[in-house]
C-alpha cells in the first residue's frame, strides 16, 4: 500500500465487482444499525405480548410499559442513584488506571519487584471479590473507602497485566538501537516502552471499565447504602425486597446502559489514541 492509495480516487469507470462491493458495504452499514434495533423492538414487543397475553403478574415479570412508567415516575430517585454509582465506578477506574500503570512500570523497571509482588496481584485478582467485600467492610472504617477498594480490586488487574506485557513488548531491534545511542532508562521508558504499551493498556482499559462497574455493583450489594448512599444497585436490591419489580427492572436497565456508555467511551478513547498508526484502528480497503 502506498500513499497514493489514500488519496480520494474518483475513477471514471467502475467495474461490476466494484459496484457490488459498494453495494455490499452500503447494506452492511445500514444493517449494522437496523438489525440490532429490530431485535430490540421485537424483543420488547414479544415481552409485552407475553406479559399481557399470559397475564403474568407484575411481581413476577413486569411488562415493558410498567418499567417505562416506573423509570419516569421514579426519576427523582433513579437519577441521583445513577450519579452515585457512576461516581464510585469512575473513581475506582481512575484509581485502577493509576495503580495498574504505576505497578506495571515498577514491575518492568525492577524484575525483583515483579518477582516479589506479581503473584500477590494475581491472588488478589483470583479471590472472588464478593468474598473479600465483607472483610473490607469490617477492617476499613469508612464504608465509602471499603466500597471503592472493592471496585478497585476488580478493575485494576487487567490494566496491570496488559500494561506489563505492553511495556515488555517493544521491538528488540529498536531496543538495541536505543542501547547503541546510549539512551537513558527514562528515555527508553518514555520513547520506546510507553508507546509500545499504549495499545495493550487501552485494551486493558476497555475491560477495566466494565469491571469497575461490576465491582461498584458488588460493593453496593455487600456494603450497602451505608458507604455510598443509595446507588443503583442498592436501589435494585431494595426494590426487590419490596416486590417493586418495575423499579427493579428500571434500575437494571440503567446499570446496563451505564456499562454500554463506559464501553463506548473507552472504545472512543482507544480509537482516538491509536487511529494514526495502530493496525487495530485502521480501516483496510479490503
Amino acid at each position: 500500500m502506498s500513499l497514493a492509495d489514500q488519496a480520494p480516487v474518483t475513477l471514471p469507470t467502475v467495474d461490476i465487482e466494484e459496484q457490488q462491493r459498494a453495494r455490499r458495504e452500503k447494506i452492511n452499514r445500514i444493517a449494522k444499525w437496523t438489525l440490532p434495533s429490530l431485535v430490540l423492538v421485537l424483543s420488547v414487543l414479544g415481552w409485552h405480548l407475553y406479559v399481557t397475553l399470559a397475564e403474568v403478574p407484575h411481581y413476577i415479570l413486569p411488562g415493558p410499559v410498567l418499567v417505562a412508567q416506573k423509570m419516569a415516575e421514579d426519576r427523582a430517585l433513579l437519577w441521583p442513584a445513577m450519579l452515585i454509582t457512576a461516581r464510585l465506578t469512575l473513581l475506582a477506574l481512575a484509581m485502577a488506571v493509576v495503580g495498574g500503570v504505576v505497578l506495571a512500570v515498577a514491575f518492568t523497571q525492577s524484575k525483583w519487584a515483579e518477582m516479589s509482588f506479581f503473584p500477590y496481584a494475581v491472588i488478589l485478582q483470583v479471590t472472588p471479590v464478593i468474598a473479600i467485600a465483607p472483610l473490607l467492610q469490617i477492617y476499613v472504617e469508612s464504608a465509602f473507602v471499603a466500597a471503592l477498594l472493592c471496585a478497585w480490586i476488580v478493575a485494576f488487574f487487567p490494566i496491570l497485566s496488559n500494561t506489563t506485557i505492553g511495556l515488555k513488548s517493544a521491538d528488540h531491534n529498536l531496543s538495541d538501537l536505543f542501547t547503541i545511542y546510549g539512551a537513558t532508562r527514562w528515555q527508553r521508558l518514555r520513547y520506546l516502552a510507553a508507546p509500545s504499551a499504549l495499545p495493550f493498556f487501552l485494551g486493558g482499559l476497555k475491560i477495566a471499565g466494565g469491571l469497575a462497574l461490576i465491582g461498584a455493583v458488588v460493593a453496593e450489594f455487600v456494603i450497602g447504602r451505608a458507604g455510598t448512599g443509595l446507588g443503583l444497585a442498592s436501589t435494585l436490591l431494595e426494590a426487590s425486597y419490596r416486590f417493586n419489580f418495575g423499579r427493579l427492572y428500571a434500575a437494571l436497565i440503567l446499570i446496563s446502559l451505564m456499562g454500554v456508555v463506559i464501553f463506548a467511551v473507552m472504545s472512543l478513547i482507544s480509537h482516538l489514541a491509536l487511529r494514526k498508526w495502530h493496525e487495530s484502528a485502521i480501516k483496510r480497503e479490503r
Binding site: 545511542y181 520513547y191 520506546l192
Partner: peptide
C-alpha cells in the same frame, strides 16, 4: 555509529521525520 537492521525497525507511532529525529532526540 549508525545502524541499519534487516528490518526497517521504525517506531510505528512516529512519522518518518520523527523516526529520523530519534538519534538527536536521545541526545
Amino acid at each position: 555509529l549508525g545502524v541499519v537492521f534487516q528490518e526497517p525497525t521504525l517506531m510505528p507511532w512516529a512519522t518518518a521525520a520523527q523516526n529520523v529525529w530519534l538519534p538527536f532526540r536521545l541526545r
